[in-house]
Amino acid sequence: MKTAIAAQNSSSETLIDKHFGKCSYFHIYDDESQTTEVIDNPARGIKGCKGDVIVNELIAKNVNAVIAGDFGTKVQQLLNQGQIQMIIHPDTRVSVSEIIELLNHKNK
């Protein structure tokens, strides 16, 4: 299972992003291989409706779940259609590495 975490920068110690669509990077954690791939937000620099660009990219990478501080309404519609699990973490003082540690416990 792959989880994309919206993040402020590319380091694993970075905090998660308050807003899914506007984050700079996604850290895609695969709990089977226990590896993380960091990608630029594919919609960075695009003005207007970015949701479809991001969601299509995540679907192409077989992402099953996404985590951010909040999700815009249009992006929620697209994620619903893609059957991707949304996780809202209202406390955005949590780091990507802390989230990955939690996702890892699932296997134990």
Partner: peptide, 17 residues
């Protein structure tokens, strides 16, 4: 946290974190 659980039956929904 808040989350959705697409395709998961209610009885087996758990917090993903």
């Amino acid at each position: 946290i808040f989350f959705t659980a697409p395709g998961i039956e209610l009885s087996s929904v758990r917090c993903p974190l």
